Amino acid sequence: MKPRFLWLAPWLALACASCSDSAGTKDPNTADGGGSGNPNPSPDAGHDWSVFSSGTEVRVTVPESGRAYVRFDPPGAVQVSGDPKASTDWDLALEQYDVYTNGGASGTGRGSAFGPIDAPSYSAATPPQVPLMFTDKTGGAFVKWYAYDGDTHVLYSRYHVAGIQDGTRRWKVQVLGYYGERDGAPVSALYKVRYAELFADRVGDTVEVTNLDGTAGGLTADPNKTSEFLDLSNGARTMLTPAAANASNAWQLGFRRDTIGANGGVGGPRGVTSIDFDDAATAGEALAQVKTRTADGEKARFDAINWASFEGKTLRGDRVISGFGDAWADRNARTPAYAAWVVTSAGGEKKYFIGFTSFENATATSPGTVALRIKPFKE
């Protein structure tokens, strides 16, 4: 059966493939429960990797296909019997250059993650404040649509332009805002977007839509609460529950809290694919820079996209996203990021600091043997 979009996860945090079945528990060949043995080579001598000297080192070999699993208590690499998605015997899963937590779209646990955090925070006497924990969810071109201000807890649109393809038809979409007004009071998750259909010889009229209702009853993400879904082909707006959206072809884009999803891949049955034309710029976008952007100032970015902009590009259906995203590794350099994460265990009651310290025998599709450090996070 084709998977459907999992609208139950309230927050953001990559490709979802079939989980490999394995038997047994802890694998002594891939875990060093006490952090003994030779130190891992530093992937970047320009950083002080000694900040990760505390905690327990775990070494896990990530296969070219399939998944490797890590447990936090006791720390180690594990093999999981039966259906891994139904198991709470693991806390992290590594698949090629993706990391997942055991929660939301990835598992039946209550796992979640927040990061990246500055690497020295891992060993700081006073741990950082963590405002949000992100549960794994599905997403695609809109995964990075906003920048988050942790001081004010405000979301700012990056004004990236997304390309949407549905069969032979194409659109461009730009998110203009996340905050609207209801009964004279400001309300989050009331979206404003603009879009236009693209043709080989011209661009259609620009349409602006306001107050797209992604509130879904608030932060509780009750699956029985509806949110709004948009059909770009005719402008129809439909309120649907997550279950109804999973079975519906009546929409192309869905809005639920901070999540924008497309109806394709694990996102739904319609076969919609998408791309963020500005994705490559995300890593260099400072929050201060994003906060200065306006709908008028970013109109030129929107206007620049046409039918030909899609040529030679890879569009994909939605997929599973975690709080690690692409930030935990430099795939081109085949090195881990100099950063830390806070991760909730599958049981949901404990948080841990995680830092990745080296990749050994990495390839284009797998980081090889990954060394990571795990220690309890003291709030």
Rank of each mutant, 00 (worst) to 15 (best):
A288S: 15
S345A: 13
D83F: 08
L155T: 05
W49V: 04
L14F: 10
S22N: 09
A124P: 02
N224K: 11
E285Q: 14
K172Q: 12
T56Y: 11
L155M: 11
K375G: 06
I117R: 04
S157N: 12
G76Y: 03
T108G: 04
L253H: 08
V175K: 05
H160C: 06
R331H: 08
P186A: 15
K351Y: 01
G140V: 08
A68T: 02
V290S: 01
S112I: 08
Y148S: 10
V343R: 11
A247C: 00
I374R: 09
T369E: 12
G204E: 01
A77N: 13
L12M: 09
S157A: 13
A189W: 08
G347P: 02
T206K: 03
E208C: 03
R182V: 12
D213M: 06
F302C: 01
A308Y: 06
F229L: 11
W11Q: 14
T357K: 08
F356R: 03
T363V: 04
N29M: 12
G163K: 07
G268N: 05
T344E: 10
I260Y: 03
A141G: 15
A247K: 13
G355K: 09
Q289N: 13
D151P: 03
A304M: 00
G254W: 04
D98L: 03
D91T: 12
R256V: 03
F359S: 09
D21T: 11
G66T: 03
G55L: 07
Q79D: 14
V342C: 01
S121L: 12
G139A: 15
D44N: 14
A31V: 12
E64Q: 13
E57A: 12
E379A: 14
D166M: 09
K350D: 13
V80L: 10
S358C: 09
D98I: 02
I321Y: 13
A147H: 12
V209G: 00
S81K: 12
A362V: 07
S227V: 00
S81V: 03
K192A: 14
R4P: 00
I164F: 01
V60E: 05
V193K: 02
A340K: 10
V62P: 04
F142H: 09
V154L: 14
I164T: 01
K192P: 03
A244C: 00
L253R: 08
L219Y: 11
K192E: 15
D73T: 12
L92D: 04
Y148G: 03
K2W: 08
K351T: 05
G204Q: 05
